[in-house]
Amino acid sequence: MTEFNLMNGQAIELTKDGILFKGNRIEIDGKVIIDKDDKHIAVLEQDKNKIKQSSVDIDDKPITTKINLNTALVNKVIDNLLKEIETVKLQRSPRVHIEFDHINDVPTIFIDGEKVQDGLVSLNIDWKTNTEKISEKTFTLKTINKDGYETITGENSLF
């Protein structure tokens, strides 16, 4: 038997019958993780298609906790949940959202939850309370992209 000490403080015993790892946690290339406590050993194996977890007690009696996960399916479920979260965020966010800290700052503008990316040329909002008559309300946003093309976005309450 030969003992080989690793830099992480663990040791490997090399014998003619095989290899014995010493320590409470062993991780091999992120694909196989072996954790040990006083009563159980848990083995987690992963490849690009699935994750398999097995647990065995120290007396080598199998425990019924085995999990096989299809990682492609798990990733699909996570993607769908993230899309649903984004949809809920959009439903809760106002149609037009304007942020600025100081009147001389260029405002950050969001329309339907999306940040306006082109350069802001002008922003005009005309809104008055309806008193004796219905007042016109307008919103106009003019932007320019890197190629010099202007875009005008707006709404008018009378049209």
Rank of each mutant, 00 (worst) to 15 (best):
D29H: 03
V106R: 14
D101Y: 07
K76A: 15
I109Q: 00
A72E: 13
Q91S: 09
W127R: 09
D17H: 09
R95C: 04
N80V: 04
K89E: 12
E45I: 02
H40I: 05
K48R: 02
I98H: 07
D60L: 15
D38M: 02
I51Y: 08
K50G: 14
K31H: 11
K76Q: 15
L69C: 06
D47Q: 04
I78D: 11
Q53A: 10
I12A: 00
I34C: 02
Q117W: 03
Q91V: 02
I98C: 04
D101W: 01
V88T: 10
F110G: 08
H40P: 07
P107R: 06
K76H: 05
T64K: 13
R95E: 13
Q117F: 05
M1K: 04
I109R: 05
I78S: 07
E13D: 03
T65S: 13
I98D: 09
L81S: 08
I41Y: 01
T71A: 03
D37A: 03
R25T: 09
N70T: 03
G119E: 13
D59W: 08
G119L: 13
K48P: 13
I58E: 04
A72C: 02
N8V: 12
I19S: 05
E114I: 03
G30T: 08
K48W: 02
D79C: 08
T87M: 09
V74Q: 02
G119R: 12
